[in-house]
């Protein structure tokens, strides 16, 4: 009975986890370079950026929305931060500027959607273009590079032998999980995605909470920008292009329904890791990037097909 309800509540996530473990097992057999500590640190570090963006995407998708602007917001945050660092603004303040820029753009999305009643697809499509345009205007299309070692901590440093980006990712997931399961905002995210009208009629301030959800997505894009900028030691105006698709893919592989109202943060982490492991494994095996793209696309489709098949069986 206990086992049964465990499966009922987390079945989709367990399924994805089994997929990840199976994939890892296959790669373990195929290449000796895969199952090593250094390679897993490598994978988790590579996954961190997409995984963090995907957290915001998960919130947005559970609320029955979509955020196409994450990549552009990432570029904007990165450039704001890099510009501030170059202008000798103290590190903490520069970080704050970058994160604030992300949060602000996200909130703009939220306001357009909740007050302006724009469909999320349209609002964030617009923001994607606007933010990218602003970045190119600010930078004249040129990257801003070369930062003090204090900033590079976000890429290079380790704590307890684990790289800082991985710690940050873990922390983001822990907080996001708690927010989603233990706070009003989290509860309302599910409620809005499940039935917005009923949620409004239950007295929930839907506009505010929706704005916050998109704000969080923007904020996390800003956080991803910190990691990316530190990693490349450069803030590129073209950074983050198409990152929205990777984030959506991780979320969907992780079992979040695009229809809203359903999904778990742990699933998204597994989804992001599946993508990371696939890329890493196919690199190790020397498979061409064309095949990689095909495989990742197939995994997305299969994951969602399985999800639907399982749902049908449960009813």
């Amino acid at each position: 009975m206990r086992m049964h309800s465990l499966w009922q509540q987390h079945g989709r996530q367990l399924g994805t986890l089994i997929g990840l473990l199976g994939l890892s097992a296959v790669l373990w057999i195929l290449t000796p370079h895969f199952m090593t500590i250094s390679n897993w640190l490598n994978i988790t570090q590579q996954t961190a950026i997409n995984a963090i963006i995907a957290v915001g995407m998960t919130f947005v998708i559970i609320s029955a929305g979509i955020d196409l602007s994450v990549g552009s917001i990432l570029a904007l945050s990165g450039v704001v931060m890099a510009g501030a660092l170059k202008a000798d603004v103290p590190l903490s303040l520069a970080l704050l500027f970058g994160l604030a820029a992300g949060f602000f753009c996200g909130c703009m999305n939220g306001v357009l959607i909740s007050r302006g009643k724009l469909p999320p697809f349209i609002a964030t499509l617009g923001m994607m273009s606007v933010a990218r345009g602003v970045v190119l205007i600010i930078t004249d299309g040129r990257p801003i590079s070369g930062f003090a070692p204090s900033f590079r901590v976000f890429a290079n440093a380790e704590f307890l032998a684990i790289p800082i980006p991985v710690w940050i990712m873990a922390l983001v997931y822990l907080i996001a999980h708690l927010v989603l399961t233990r706070t009003k905002l989290g509860r309302y995210t599910y409620a809005m995605g499940g039935n917005e009208e009923a949620t409004v009629l239950s007295g929930v301030h839907v506009r505010f909470h929706k704005t916050m959800i998109y704000g969080i997505s923007g904020l996390l894009s800003g956080l991803a920008a910190v990691l990316l900028t530190a990693r490349l030691n450069s803030a590129q105006p073209i950074a983050g292009m198409m990152y929205e698709l990777d984030a959506i893919a991780a979320t969907v592989i992780g079992g979040t329904s695009l229809l809203g109202g359903e999904g778990r943060i742990a699933g998204t982490l597994i989804g992001a890791l599946i993508m990371g492991v696939l890329r890493n494994g196919l690199n190790l095996l020397g498979v061409s990037s064309f095949v990689q793209q095909t495989v990742i696309g197939a995994v997305i489709i299969v994951a969602v097909l399985l999800d639907m098949a399982m749902k049908k069986r449960r009813i």
Binding site: S38, N39, N42, Q46, R231, L232, R279, N280, L284
Partner: peptide, 10 residues
């Protein structure tokens, strides 16, 4: 960069 990291692992 990811590719280079992975090739280093290999």
């Amino acid at each position: 960069m990811q590719i280079i990291e992975n090739l280093i692992q290999r």
